[in-house]
Simulated assay, not measured.
Amino acid sequence: MFLVMVVSFIFVIVVIRNKANAKEETVLIDQQKGIKKTEVGRTSDLNFYRKLYEKKDINALIVGDSIAQGTGSSNVHERWINVLVKDVQKKYKSTIKTDPITGGGTTGVRAWVELNNAKFTKQYDVVFICLGQNDQFNIKPKQFSMFYEGIIIKLKKLNPNIEIIPIIESSFRQYNDYSNVIENLAEHYNLQYADMVQAFNNSGKPYDSLSKDLVHPNSKGYVYYAKTIEKVINDNYLSNKKTDIDYSVFYNNTNKLTDFVFDNSPDLNNGFTIEDGFIGNKVSENLTFNTTNSVAIIHFLRKPKGGKFKVFIDDNFIKEINTNSTFQVSYSDLIAYKLRGNHKIRIEISYIINKGSVKVLGLVTN
């Protein structure tokens, strides 16, 4: 009986100790989880420059046109972004992962549309905006200012701590109304821009020696892009720049872009088939959208064996858009930005390449 009591006592002691140890382990695990959670939260609050200082991984977004893509370089390694990533990693010991949005032929309109349409799965620390070359021939400076500022505001909403580095493209050759927009917005939002007009002019080399086709830089020209952007980054790094700022809208027209509406449900469809958009392959097939908003943008596909469509607002012809291209890419064309009241926007096929088609993705309004 005595032995039974001793064994029972020992068993009870062991059980109590095991429970105590288990409780201590649970507390320790919870503390470790708390520490990890705090670390994750702290890291997400760090801005681009603090992450460089702490040698953290960087997520970068590239918003822009074919120059943003590095078109004109001899190979992929000589594109400005890849030169920049390599140099930053060497200097700051931080790895930069880059994601492009938009591409060749991009204007501020398309960039704004696709930025708002994108479903991002990560938080970006820095974004490079490389726009303006194509805008000169597609939209007015007043419209460019509206969409460029709309892009900045959208990026700040995605991450208030994001660093935005605008690029004044070398292809401007000289300062103009479009570069002035970039300078004005940079000053207003405390952004330091990379001035490639100045960089090329101060290089001491003829412009054509730094450009492949007098628009796109060549590999030598893109070295100036990378070095100029590196200097912007380094200057901001040394000054411990703050990126979470209070801001207000600079251009009044930008207030029109507070909302983003992607309408892929036309009120009338005559002949288009539905397949991730609307595909038409016969002249006179048409789509009609009703809108009460002031901004109207047609979002469509440019592709080989495309065609043309005409745009009418309340039966008044606005413009004809060519969708034929050597490669497939989504595109956005501004139709109106001062509409008032109720309006009907009709898209009507006017020409089709043999065995081709027109693909409309939808109507974007504000």
Rank of each mutant, 00 (worst) to 15 (best):
A60G: 07
D57E: 11
R79E: 10
T98K: 06
N75Q: 10
D99R: 05
D87C: 08
K86Y: 13
I67W: 04
S94T: 06
I101N: 00
G64C: 07
K86H: 14
K93Q: 14
Q89I: 09
G103K: 05
A60K: 03
T102L: 02
T98F: 09
R79V: 12
R79A: 08
K86D: 10
V83C: 10
N59R: 09
D57I: 07
K91V: 07
K93H: 12
V88N: 04
D57C: 02
V85G: 07
I101T: 04
D57F: 06
L61Y: 01
V88S: 09
N82T: 04
L84T: 01
V85L: 12
V63I: 11
V76Q: 15
P100F: 15
D87V: 12
G70Q: 01
P100A: 12
N59W: 06
V76L: 14
N82D: 07
I58P: 01
S94F: 05
S73T: 07
D57R: 07
I81A: 06
V76I: 15
T98E: 06
T71I: 13
N82A: 05
Q69I: 13
S66T: 05
N75R: 09
D65E: 15
K97C: 04
E78P: 05
Q89H: 15
I101Y: 02
K97Y: 13
T71H: 10
Y92W: 08
I62H: 04
D65N: 14
V83E: 09
N82F: 08
L84Q: 03
T95G: 10
V83D: 05
K90I: 11
G103R: 02
I101P: 01
I67E: 10
D57Y: 06
V83W: 00
H77V: 08
K91A: 07
T102C: 13
W80Y: 08
K97P: 01
Q89W: 14
V85N: 13
V63D: 03
S73V: 07
I96C: 09
G103N: 08
K91L: 11
K97H: 12
I67F: 12
I96Y: 08
A68Q: 04
V63L: 10
G103V: 04
G64I: 02
D57S: 12
R79N: 10
S73Y: 01
N75K: 09
I62K: 01
Y92P: 00
V85M: 11
D87T: 13
I81C: 04
T98C: 11
S74Q: 06
S94K: 08
R79P: 00
T98L: 09
I81R: 12
G70P: 00
L84M: 08
A68K: 03
N59E: 13
V83L: 15
V76H: 14
K90S: 15
D99W: 00
K97I: 06
I101G: 00
L61E: 04
E78C: 09
Q69H: 14
K56P: 04
K93L: 05
T95A: 11
T98W: 08
K56H: 09
